[in-house]
Amino acid sequence: MPRIRPGRIVAWTLLFIGGVIMVTPLLFMLSTSLKDASQVYDLRVIPEAPTLDNYIEILSDGRFTRWFVNSMIVAVVVTLSNVFFDSLVGYTLAKFRFRGRYFVFIAILSTLMIPTEMLVLPWYLMASQFGWLDSYWGIMFPGMMTAFGTFLMKQFFEGVPDDFLEAARIDGLNEFTIWWKIAMPLVTPALSALAIFTFLGNWTAFFWPLIVTTSADLYTLPVGLSSFAVEQSIQWEKIMTGASIATLPTLIIFLFLQRYIVRGVMLAGLKG
């Protein structure tokens, strides 16, 4: 048997503890969603009398499906927008030399230092003046492009060798097509990461959607779920059921995109 080094044991132990800390709340969420109201404060992981009643109740409640769809629309549109615009701007900043390039980059980057809480007021005033309050566009517009995404994509595009782009230029592609057909496929790992971050961030966004929406029809899932908590008494089993269902899309997205993150195709076409 190969000797196991002590360092490995420490690493595994730490990973195990980390894993337990991460997974326990998830397990409790699932477990609580399978309990009825009387068992909620019984802390057993496996419920005494598991029931799907909560799921049936929630899924047959039209409001929940509406919120789910709202969240999906917001998260998908914002994710696509970020993947498109962040990478377009990141590519331009990484691969073109023009006057003021550095200034533009610093200006974009400096917005990262402003906390969301500070931006909410100007966003609100802007949305109000443009008549975007209580609309999908109102929820989405602040996140359509992010400084973080632009920065991430710029860093990745800088790693794309110029030879690829020059070869394409000689083959007759225009600059937009070079970005779309050559550069983008070479940064799929970064695009996947950006897509996952953006989707998760928007799927779970609470603060801004809460502020900008007033009608229950436009609530996103987190806002809607929180209304469960305050409507009557706190219904933990309903909240946990909603949260369990809400977790599914993020899991699916992650499972679908993670292979692109792992696969580093970048250098295969160069010397090797």
């Binding site: 020059e166 070869a167 000689i170 083959d171 250098l267 076409g269 160069l270």
Partner: peptide, 18 residues
């Protein structure tokens, strides 16, 4: 470059990996 009707072979090959 595209209007010069030339073809170029690069040191790093620059063939598209995807």
């Amino acid at each position: 470059p595209k209007d010069r009707n030339i073809a170029m072979v690069f040191q790093n090959y620059a063939i598209y990996p995807h």
